[in-house]
Design a protein around this nucleic acid. Structure first.
Length: 474
RNA sequence: GGCGCUAUCGUCUAACGGUUAGGACGGAGCCCUCUCAAGGCUUAAAUACGGGUUCGAUUCCCGUUAGCGCUACCA
């Protein structure tokens, strides 16, 4: 049974890089009929906040992919400590009584090589170590990394291929802090072992940490999971995405708030660092699941293409517009309804009519918000008349023609797209004007906009009563 | 500084030794048309650099350069 995990730490909102990792895990697990564990990585009590946790769930819930099991690492400290004790007992780890922050010089000059361990502490006898611990002296538990210069730790990464590193280049990393709380490395491995995780799929920033993790797994005599590291999402200037530097573009909820469809955003994220290799771009969740595989995952980081002038990656926007026009109207309608209500507009109660309106206008929209802005005239009588629309209404004879059109529509027993077209063209012919004049000014009068769907479709979307009223009002 | 990873159009990517280096977004242009979108068509735009290996390198190897990651009692 495939078991993967997603382990966000609640030190901020749900970052798009985290969402990227979450989605790849989800896809992998679905594809292999496995289970996905959501594990809140909250071992750093000083930096965790409830607000962050809420916003992570916020983002995850919007994505609506779900998960199978959920844990908080802070509830599992016993599991972590137990592993630290086990490693200590096996002498794979040792107590380091060096006071915090004193073990690494602040301004370690370059060229002297990295800090690897505190030899005195490493050499402490078991009795001495026990005695000082019993005396209440604070300590950190460190992994005793093999110092034999020929010793190497190796693994096969599902994305990056064969990896190896000399243990001589790995420092004696901390497992348990002096406050008794586990470090990331310990908690992560202890939980992976305990939860029988088979696939660790995470960001490439953990690629070099994997060597340490393997040491822990080996020390615990636990079977190794498969590792797959994912390329990182970065900013156009190559730096990593951070809220401080890049603002709201790094938070998933931003895209929700801008009117993105979750499936479109998921689609967009999938195309960063992965390719189905057959030129497909727009894909449904089902298509993504069946096409997904680790072979298609890239090894180089992917740039999210935004700028200050244009804070949304144009491809994300394009993908959203594609999904917006191709998902079933019945699926789209509730989302549009919610958006309209949030914007203070009143969507029509008649569901069939509502679907008709949505279907007519959605091809030129790219986000849900467009229904409330560009599409406002379809849902409210209070809509602005744009300057260029006004110019169309100011065309010679336009207003009078519209008033007369209102009369004809009032006496049209059908009021369908075809019948209105007949009414309008007949009027144009009788008056000797081009149909285009009436068509364009009608659109301007009915929607306040110079552009939009076929004018005849607009009539049926606005509705007979409102059409007559709006035409007479100009 | 040490160690690890990476390098194809502006961006996302395809080509796993032989292609006129393909697609998409964005840009430009044309067609369609009641406007605007959509759609269709056309077009500009890339293998970081230098060495090898090979009959032949985007592809394999080495070096250089650049970027990223790790080098915390952060994750």
């Amino acid at each position: 049974m495939t078991r993967a995990r997603f382990a966000p730490s609640p030190t901020g909102y749900l970052h798009i890089g985290s969402a990227h990792t979450f989605i790849f895990n989800w896809l992998y697990v679905r594809k292999h009929q496995g289970k996905l564990v959501l594990r809140i990585d909250d071992t750093d009590v000083d930096r965790n906040t409830q607000a962050s946790l809420d916003s992570i769930y916020d983002g995850l819930n919007w994505l609506a992919l779900g998960w199978d099991e959920c844990y908080r690492e802070s509830d599992r400290l016993e599991v972590h400590r137990k592993l630290a004790d086990e490693l200590l007992a096996k002498r794979f780890a040792y107590r380091d009584f060096t006071p915090a922050a004193a073990d690494v010089p602040e301004d370690r000059p370059h060229g002297e090589g990295p800090w690897l361990c505190n030899p005195d502490m490493r050499a402490l006898s078991g009795e001495e170590s026990d005695r000082r611990a019993a005396a209440g002296e604070p300590f950190v538990i460190r992994f005793r990394v093999q110092r034999d210069p020929a010793y190497e730790v190796a693994f096969h990464d599902e994305v990056y291929g064969p990896q190896s590193k000399l243990t001589a280049d790995i420092e004696d990393f901390a497992l348990l802090r002096s406050n008794g709380l586990p470090t990331y490395h310990l908690a992560s491995c202890a939980d992976d072992i305990d939860m029988k995780i088979t696939h660790v799929i995470r960001g490439q920033d953990h690629l070099s940490n994997t060597f340490k993790h393997i040491l822990i797994f080996q020390g615990a005599n636990a079977p190794l999971p498969r590792f797959a590291h994912l390329p990182l999402l970065i900013a156009p200037d190559g730096s990593k995405l951070s809220k401080r530097k890049h603002g709201p573009v790094v938070s998933v909820t931003t895209y929700r708030d801008k009117g993105f469809l979750a499936v479109a955003y998921i689609n967009f994220l999938c195309l960063l660092g992965w390719s189905p290799k057959d030129n497909r771009e727009q894909m449904t969740l089902y298509e993504l699941t069946s096409a997904f595989n680790l072979d298609g995952v890239h090894r180089s980081n992917a740039v999210v293409n935004f700028s200050e002038a244009d804070p949304i990656d144009p491809k994300a926007l394009w993908l959203n517009s594609q999904h917006l026009r191709s998902i079933p109207v019945a699926v789209l309608a509730p989302l549009v309804r919610k958006t309209l209500e949030e914007q203070g507009l009143e969507p029509p109660a008649d569901e069939v009519f509502f679907h008709h309106v949505i279907d007519t206008i959605r091809t030129r929209f790219s986000t849900l918000l467009d229904f409330a802005t560009k599409g406002r005239a379809y849902f409210s009588d209070d809509y602005p008349i744009e300057k260029q629309a006004l110019e169309k209404l100011d065309a010679p004879g336009a207003r009078e023609l519209l008033h007369e059109l209102a009369n004809r529509i009032e006496s049209d027993p059908e009021f369908t797209e075809a019948s209105v077209e007949r009414d309008l063209r007949k009027l144009a012919e009788e008056r000797g004007v081009k149909a285009g004049l009436i068509i364009n000014s009608s659109r301007a009068a009915l929607t306040g906009q110079p552009v939009g769907p076929s004018a005849f479709a607009v009539f049926t979307c606005i509705g007979r009563e409102r059409v007559i009223r709006r035409l007479r009002k100009v």
